[in-house]
Amino acid sequence: MNSATREAFGKALAELGATNPDIVSLDADLSCTTKSATFAKAFPDRFFNMGIAEQDLMATAAGLAACDKIPFASTFSVFATCRALDQIRNSICYPHLNVKVVGTHAGPSCGEDGGSHQAIEDIAIMRSLPGMTVVVPADDVEAEKVVHAAAAYYGPMYLRFARLASPTVHDEDYEFDLFHGEVMRDGTDVAIIACGMMVPRALDAAEQLAAEGISARVVNMHTIKPIDADLVEACARECGKIVTIEEATIVGGLGSAVCEVVAERCPVPVKRIGMPDIFGKSGPGAELLDEFGLSAENIIETVKSF
């Protein structure tokens, strides 16, 4: 509980390895920190360290998938989705191979390593690839279930995990549904649609707003593509305004995906919270989140600004 989603990834992958011999894991010299090392230790024959070579990592995973393995190819999000984008596009998505691209240390909560290492554009990039499923779990409990769901689902998938530990907002018996967002708190005045570790912040904000008489619905939109369009539409119809929040650029990510649905189905005002077309920087991850407005306070302020 209250651990980083990358920790849950390592744990779940090792669990999967024990029950499914087709699961294989590849990493690019970051297994100790992406936590694929947990799998590597348990199943050394099914773990392949590809060295610091992300392009080779992704295309090798494609070859394994073409022979019916279920590869989880992990590295930092920024390297997975930017350095190896062409490999993900042409060798994984174009042939629709069953590779799970795992990006850890996503977003400014990655912290001290700075802007070079903080993926902000990964959701937007991955979302634009035909056939790619994009999932950003809210906490460790959900992350573990996401990994199991990924293995059970055939097709390319991008899983986004965080470096920083964050509050657990799900019970252990939570039933994860890959293609349906989760209404975590009902409300009628505004819908706050969040993903990743922004979900607990959205819940905090809703609690504080309730004290002020504002009824905020909180949606955990863990799967950004394909997005649960019916749920987004329901939020628009029933709440009349929407705030989105994601630990990523506001260009092309969750906020954009919500706007696309709203524009086509039920136009209502939407405000997007995220990185405002800037790169991150060094600093403690938790502090950076607050500094960039990825906070309950900013959600509250934004809700009130409509």
Partner: peptide
């Protein structure tokens, strides 16, 4: 056709992955 190709330089990695799968099995 065993693999979609076109963007140069990716095929050898894919072949390696196929060979690793064969070794595992």
């Amino acid at each position: 056709v065993e693999m979609s190709t076109g963007s140069l330089g990716q095929g050898l990695s894919v072949a390696n992955g196929m060979a690793l799968a064969g070794r595992l099995d």
